[in-house]
Design a protein around this nucleic acid. Sequence first.
DNA 1: CGGTAAACGAGACGGTACGTCGTGTCTTTGA
DNA 2: TCAAAGACACGACGTACCGTCTCGTTTACCG
Lengths: 210, 210, 210, 210
Amino acid sequence: MSIKRPVKSSVPAETAGRRGRPRSSAARARVLHAARALVEAQGPAAVTIEAVAARAGVSKPTIYRTWPNAPAVVMAALMESAGTPEANTHRGSALAALRRQLREIAATFASRTGRSVTQMIASADADTELSKAFRHHFILARREEGRRMLAAAVANGELRREVDLDVTLDLLYGPIFFRILVGHAPADERFCDRLLDQLVKGVAAPKAKR
Amino acid sequence: MSIKRPVKSSVPAETAGRRGRPRSSAARARVLHAARALVEAQGPAAVTIEAVAARAGVSKPTIYRTWPNAPAVVMAALMESAGTPEANTHRGSALAALRRQLREIAATFASRTGRSVTQMIASADADTELSKAFRHHFILARREEGRRMLAAAVANGELRREVDLDVTLDLLYGPIFFRILVGHAPADERFCDRLLDQLVKGVAAPKAKR
Amino acid sequence: MSIKRPVKSSVPAETAGRRGRPRSSAARARVLHAARALVEAQGPAAVTIEAVAARAGVSKPTIYRTWPNAPAVVMAALMESAGTPEANTHRGSALAALRRQLREIAATFASRTGRSVTQMIASADADTELSKAFRHHFILARREEGRRMLAAAVANGELRREVDLDVTLDLLYGPIFFRILVGHAPADERFCDRLLDQLVKGVAAPKAKR
Amino acid sequence: MSIKRPVKSSVPAETAGRRGRPRSSAARARVLHAARALVEAQGPAAVTIEAVAARAGVSKPTIYRTWPNAPAVVMAALMESAGTPEANTHRGSALAALRRQLREIAATFASRTGRSVTQMIASADADTELSKAFRHHFILARREEGRRMLAAAVANGELRREVDLDVTLDLLYGPIFFRILVGHAPADERFCDRLLDQLVKGVAAPKAKR
DNA sequence: CGGTAAACGAGACGGTACGTCGTGTCTTTGA
DNA sequence: TCAAAGACACGACGTACCGTCTCGTTTACCG
């Protein structure tokens, strides 16, 4: 009988010489993997420290040593799972690139996990460092990318010079998250396209002075 | 075992043929008042059934008899506290009325309680009757009012006929909620104004035909 | 405060001068029947007022109008179900009659319901009128019948005159209930016979003067 | 869900190879002390887990970790409080020792706590390990001690050889518990004495053949 | 024979306790 | 040294019954 004790870490490699620490990074990975699995399967509310610890084969204090509470674990898991979106290659006009980005965002956030990200942002403490990093990772980083595209479009002559970029950016991303959050209508490609077109063109009647 | 429970509805509905002792409206009012006080003071997460029961001087089963869980109580409390916003009096142009509504919404949702409403919408079950009512009460009702104003503006000649109203509505309200949710910039009057102006005018450079 | 409630009695007592609607004897019967069914099926602990009311198709206040609490209902049900044991016909000697009674008692109390009776007696309040009636109905009435038989046996010359009847009675019935209560050995016919024989004969060695 | 729980035993069993933080013997002692105080003051029905937890300054889960329900706590408390009765020193005859034991039992069980023990035995589940241990601790252990005394008395020549010891034992202890349970007469020293004397001597009239 | 008083069903009420779960902290033991 | 196992105090969960209280409806009796 092979008394093979169940290997606790998928990377047993360097367990040899050290007494304590080499498990640490393996434990971290297992925790995040477990958290990700839970949030994908049952949403962020199901990610309790106990459930994560059980699923990861890790003790609760080990988790608390790294993260202060359950939402922090969820955020870390979501951030690690979602690799940074590839930089949008500028083929065609700046506005075309923006259109591609909008579609990508809508597709990403319409998923189960995307909903979870939105929920985490809504319910997060807003002040902690991690919350800020989370918001930046999922939202503001793309918004900055968008800002660069808008600036390119201005430079292009596609957009007016005096446009307020901050307002325009929120006019682009706000409606998508609004639909995802409220759910009254789908945030699909068609919506992204119309959104962008209508924003570019404006809604005023032609002769309207204002 | 497993006796079929009567359908719970927070609205007594048919008070007509009811047998038995009627529900105490005083108890209901005390529960909602307590829940409102808690959510205002400490946010929606602090609204536990135990806390509400203690504060309202009501037993837990009395609360569970009417609402299925804590979020439902919070929603009911928030909905009852926020009376329906007054119908926007149409003085001046339809767009001016819309501007006033945007400002009112931004002011409302920038408050402590407004944040709570946003959080509840983000984390709600999305499928229950109460969640739908909640979203309608706080968001979609105003959106429908907005639709009427936009239609008036089209009739006015202020807006183009072929504008997609659904998209335009989300372009109006989405950015406000986006700022409130993400918190990267204030959703104040100035923002509302610029938002509306830029949407009306479009961002395209003058000669750009499309 | 301290309003004197009308004395509740399970027996309608003076049906004479009563105003109003008389108590429904059908309801009473249904309650007792339901309680009996429950105690037989699941023991006395399962007889909750709610369960009885549901099973009997009767409202809780109707039960509380007649009995003060659940144990009282159980006692009433058990007392009504167990009709008074038939008077022991004196065929043969007084001791033979006693033997028959012991066997009958053992058989009765070894049943599911008999266990329940024992449990009720053990856990009852000891002071209430109903508890006393219950103990009398199930135990002391038979003990008095036993006393009559013992007296007859003394008169017969079967027993010594100076025997302490009270002690002898408890020597007869105590062991049976002891076995039923503790359950370390069966209280069957053989046991009843040996019990009686040994008590009659004594256990002392023949020459032992004391 | 439904994770296999480790077997609960009120006795830590193998303290040897246990991982994790060991159970707090201080907590255990405080729980049992609180339970004992409650049962002495208000009887076994007053021993709720909540009351014990509050009085002991211990959390409910800590209690449930060790005992499955309130009666189990009561039994453990009663068993621990009542140290094993001192072995009856055989001064004088075996029957004299037996008389002393009977008196001691009667005195013990006539107390408030003794009544509680009787009630616990009557209402216990009868099948659980703890119930058996409880009955053994309070009743059957003394019965076995009694058996040894009876055997000594037989060896002495005080009792007849052919006496059925099991029946005799129940003839000794049964009546005492019967009186305590039913309460129709006191189980005092005088009763114990008469009980023993009459059992030894028998009740038959001298010439009675049977 | 028409009031009226009481019992009826239904069921909500304020309570108490249940037994479970998750939190975040703490002690052990083992590697 | 530190990680696992797991006990700990705390506190909320949602449920079951308790015994009491309205309700609207029936059903006798008594004037």
